[in-house]
Amino acid sequence: MIKYVERFGDYVLYVLEQIGWMATLLFKSLYAFAKPPYDLFAVVRQIHFIGARSLYVILVAGGFTGMVLALQFYNTLERFGSIDLLGSATALALVRELGPVMAALMVIGRAGSAMCAEIGIMRISEQIDALECMAIDPYRYLIAPKIIAGIISVPLLTSVFNVIGILGGYLVGVLIFGLSEGAYFDSMYAGVEWNDVEMGLYKSLVFGLILTWIATAKGYFLHLDRRGAYGAEGVSRTTTDAVVLSSITVLFGDYLIGALML
């Protein structure tokens, strides 16, 4: 019995320790970035990696999400004789919930995993040690540009996701099921308010921070992993952990922000 209590306590301590490392990483990175000289080019490069290169995935995912939403909503709304609400239902679902969450999940899969693996490999191949020995702050040079780029890119990608999703809904609702174009867009104008857009925006800002933070921190502290992170196996396990943890945190954060803002 005591052994289990010990193990549990040990685990709790480990989790607290990890949270401590992660908080240190975030504060040190943001603090380092706030001091001049500002390396804006590094941020632009990361925006290209996290943002621009995720665009195709976002386009495809956004299009299909909007189409599926319209398909399901059409079917449901038809039963209640209110298919005129299709536009606002699709747009609200996208702007408030699915846009930020789906875009964040797509970026986690595409860029979060890559960032975590890249930094993890830099850690085990002594590249981060090399940076420190060259008196180059890894937080400023390596981590901060990624976090800042995440905060900038994810809201932009979310907006793209929403627009494409609404067009996907239009494709299904108007072009396939024959709903009038006016009804689709009019109900959207009437139904969506600034509050809804604002909520989606806050969500995507937070998600942008969370996903880059978890991905970079997991990779950066790879060597401190209790189970021992060694070589390829360590990197692969840490990357999986990072993807799972950031996906769950995004979903949890989605609920939390939704509950707070409603």
Binding site: S125, E126, Q127, D129, A130, E132, C133, M134, A135
Partner: peptide
């Protein structure tokens, strides 16, 4: 001190640690 000294030292790591 560390930052000052590190600007005056060089390290060649075992695996090279090139980026």
């Amino acid at each position: 001190h560390m930052s000052e000294v590190r600007r005056q030292m060089g390290v060649a790591f075992q695996g090279g640690a090139l980026f």
